[in-house]
Design a protein around this nucleic acid. Structure first.
Length: 405
RNA sequence: GGGGGGAUGCCCGAGUGGCCAAAGGGGCCUGGCUGUAAACUAGGUGCGCAAGCUGCGGGGGUUCGAAUCCCUCUCCCCCCA
């Protein structure tokens, strides 16, 4: 094998590490190595502006394109978001007002540009072209694709087979997304593996409109913190890119051991050999997965916040979760100097009702200044600030004040 | 247009007149253990100090007593045409 240039190494890495499908591989490789900056499309759904590490996988891939001098084009799906999406089984995507869409899009972009270089990116609003579409344009678009082809998409096929409803609107969505590629003359479109079909429709439609078909690249769907389902807000197994450093760090530390390989490969730039070595050592029992998680957490929090924030988060985690110490900073809660313990707990927001507070005490989960409490009906008198602890990791500093009663 | 099924606690889902504050699972919380907020394990999980109150889509009714029966409204789904 010939010696590869540095650029070739980067390109090959882009096409393999954290990448599932590439269509058409050799063509894309050649174009990535070429002089012309490629227009790399990412479609964004402003219905749900909550970005988690699953999206981050995709953003990182875009960053790789940028590092090679290519150009990212973000399409805000504002037009489709306002129509709504009667998607399959789960909750329907609601119709949003223009204001909601704009606000969501802004939130999305704020998070997006934490990762992707804003100077090599362009933001485009889908309504720029669909806002002008008339019925004739729609008919023309729909004439360029067939129902049979649409029904080859896995979820459509399945639902059609079982007799579940598929609205025509839904069938239209892949075409609309495909037309976006026509509108911006995309060279490449990227998305999660679940998007493969839609991305390929883009190729067909572009050809129909007399354009060079885009190449397509998919990234894996990141498994969530439950270690089983794909990461998603609706499954509650996500780590948001905007979460505070401590929370993010803690969530990464609590991820099941068996997802570490994926997380390291998809969320860090660590060399493959390094990752393989760690996995071997963990399997052999010579390396504690906890320590790997800590390194992983440091890397991710550093990237999404800052190295300083990551270090602080690490220290916090150590104190609270490993050494079981009280954190340095904790929320302060004004309380009456004399009250039932359960009132303190509820005041601090650690229980939603008195009964819940009682249960916590009876289960042995409540400490006041380090002393475990056992009487749910106890009345305490505080002569100065006291530290209330509920469970292993919830703390508050109680500040007694006479006027607050 | 016709016929049928369904709506239960944060979620899924049992229950078809009293033993139902409502099985089971998930989630979440707490204890234990530990290698971490992993895994495992035990328990808890409407409100109220209590008597008790609220509660099974909304409203009304039958009954000593209703998640369970009747009427009505709203919404969802399926089949036939």
């Amino acid at each position: 094998m010939e010696h590869q240039s540095e650029r070739e190494v980067l390109v090959d890495r882009l096409l393999t590490r954290g990448t599932v499908d590439v269509v058409v591989r050799e063509r894309l490789r050649a174009r990535l190595l070429g002089d012309r900056p490629l227009r790399v499309k990412l479609g964004v759904d402003p219905t749900r502006p909550d970005i988690h590490l699953g999206h981050y996988v995709c953003f990182r891939k875009l960053r790789e394109f940028q590092a090679l001098g290519h150009h990212v084009v973000v399409i805000i799906g504002d037009w489709t978001a306002r129509i709504g999406d009667p998607s399959g089984r789960s909750t329907q995507r609601p119709m949003l007002t223009a204001q909601e869409v704009a606000a969501n899009a802004q939130t999305y972009l704020d998070q997006f540009f934490k990762v992707v270089d804003v100077n090599r990116a362009e933001i485009v609003w889908q309504s720029t072209w669909f806002g002008k579409f008339n019925l004739e344009d729609v008919i023309r678009l729909t004439s360029k694709y067939t129902v049979a082809k649409l029904l080859t998409r896995e979820d459509f096929a399945k639902r059609y087979e079982e007799g579940s409803p598929i609205s025509i609107t839904e069938l239209l969505y892949p075409l609309l997304q495909a037309y976006d590629s026509v509108a911006i003359q995309a060279d490449v479109e990227i998305g999660g593996t679940d998007q493969l079909f839609n991305l390929l429709v883009g190729r067909d439609i572009m050809r129909e409109y007399g354009l060079e078909p885009q190449d397509v690249l998919t990234v894996p769907l990141l498994v969530g913190t439950d270690g089983y389902l794909k990461m998603s807000k609706s499954y509650g197994n996500y780590i948001g890119v905007s979460e505070p450093p401590e929370e993010m760090f803690g969530k990464i530390m609590s991820v099941p051991d068996h997802v570490l390989g994926d997380y390291l490969r998809l969320l860090t730039d660590l060399p493959d050999e390094q990752i393989a070595q760690w996995l071997d050592e963990m399997a052999a029992g010579t390396l504690n997965p906890r320590d790997v998680k800590e390194r992983l957490a440091l890397i991710i929090v550093s990237d999404l916040h800052s190295p300083q924030a990551a270090e602080r988060a690490r220290e916090y985690f150590h104190r609270v979760h490993r050494l079981r110490e009280v954190p340095e900073e904790l929320p302060e809660v004004p309380v009456p100097p004399r009250a039932r313990v359960i009132d303190f707990i509820v005041r601090a927001g650690f229980a939603r009702s008195n009964n819940e507070a009682r249960r916590l005490i009876m289960q042995g989960g409540v400490r006041l200044d380090g002393e475990r409490l056992d009487d749910p009906e106890a009345v305490m008198e505080l002569f100065g600030p006291a530290i209330l602890q509920v469970g292993k990791r919830r703390f508050a500093r109680l500040l007694p004040s006479a006027q607050d009663s």
